[in-house]
């Protein structure tokens, strides 16, 4: 209907355009470019990389410890590959949710506060497409953050400590190659575990034009969830908290691997992504963009 009414010239212009909207891979790449061209992103990844480095250096300088401290800490002097595990245990409660909260909370609200949201929308990016791309970018960041901690841990561990076959939680020993494979699995596990929080951050981000508020709210929620997860009074709630399976990545360090927590974690996060994705869609697609 519209084409028949446009001027011949405009019609010619339109023929240059694609017949169908692209799925958005180009825009996704552009979004990744935006994310990883930010100094803030690199600062956060740098801070995450500093966690295993600080742990390793501290252990190296003090020559072990007295057995207290986070899990795996006392294994580091025997095997440098445990630096990555210890760093993950340390990072999961606060540092990883913090950085993910910043990225996810910034996703829509950041564009709104930079006044770029309205230009994206009239480009037109399509509101659903924008949400999907923002969530995908946040997921990529989750992976990047987790891999950063693991990789920095492995590298500094190799540099400062002896490396050899790794003793699993079950007392069995696996080769270095298999332990690296399991490290990768753990990175995937932790990434999946952070997807629910990313979806929550994305939803909160659609509620406001103030990115700092959305980031703070997301991070606070991740802390609240973990506090609730500690209280025995809220035990009935525990399995429904998105942070419930966060530290169960250790199930990948058992022999044989306990896959049930991987599946349960994935299902739980999927539920969170579905619920908060739907909320984000509802909120964002009905929102008046006045920023």
């Amino acid at each position: 209907m519209s084409l028949s009414e446009t001027t011949p010239r405009a019609q010619g212009d339109l023929e240059q355009r694609r017949a169908r909207r692209s799925v958005g891979f180009g825009f996704f790449l552009s979004e990744l470019g935006l994310l990883f061209r930010r100094r803030r992103t690199w600062a956060m990844l740098g801070a995450l990389a500093a966690v295993p480095i600080l742990i390793a250096v501290a252990i190296r300088l003090t020559d072990g410890g007295d057995g207290r401290g986070p899990a795996f800490l006392d294994r580091i002097t025997q095997n440098g590959l445990f630096v990555a595990m210890t760093a993950l245990v340390v990072s999961i409660p606060l540092f990883l949710p913090l950085t993910v909260g910043v990225v996810a909370g910034d996703s829509i609200a950041g564009e709104a506060s930079a006044s770029t949201l309205r230009y994206l929308l009239v480009a037109p990016v399509g509101r659903i497409r924008l949400l999907l791309v923002k969530f995908a970018a946040a997921a990529v960041f989750c992976l990047a953050a987790t891999v950063t901690v693991s990789l920095a841990g492995i590298l500094i561990g190799v540099a400062l400590f002896p490396v050899g076959p790794v003793t699993l939680l079950s007392g069995d020993t696996v080769s270095v190659a298999e332990s690296l494979g399991r490290s990768l699995l753990i990175a995937v596990y932790v990434t999946v575990g952070l997807l629910g929080l990313s979806a929550i951050g994305l939803f909160i981000s659609t509620l406001t034009d103030a990115p700092v508020g959305a980031m703070a709210a997301t991070v606070v929620l991740s802390i609240v969830a973990q506090v609730l997860g500690q209280l025995s009074q809220t035990e009935w709630l525990h399995p429904w908290l998105f942070s419930y399976h966060w530290l169960d990545f250790a199930d990948l360090l058992r022999q044989p691997i306990e896959w049930s927590s991987f599946g349960e974690n994935a299902l739980l996060q999927l539920a969170y992504v579905a619920v908060f994705g739907a909320l984000a869609y509802a909120r964002f697609s009905t929102k008046d963009i006045l920023s």
Binding site: R21, F27, S30, L34, R37, A114, R118, L120, R129
Partner: peptide, 30 residues
């Protein structure tokens, strides 16, 4: 459209900003 003042990411170059907005338009040929 230019709506109520320009809005761009300050840390991206002018070219990068425009490319991003163009990529946002799913119909624009890359």
């Amino acid at each position: 459209a230019l709506i109520e003042g320009p809005g761009f990411h300050p840390f991206l170059s002018g070219t990068a900003n425009l490319r991003r907005l163009d990529a946002a338009d799913g119909f624009a040929p890359s």
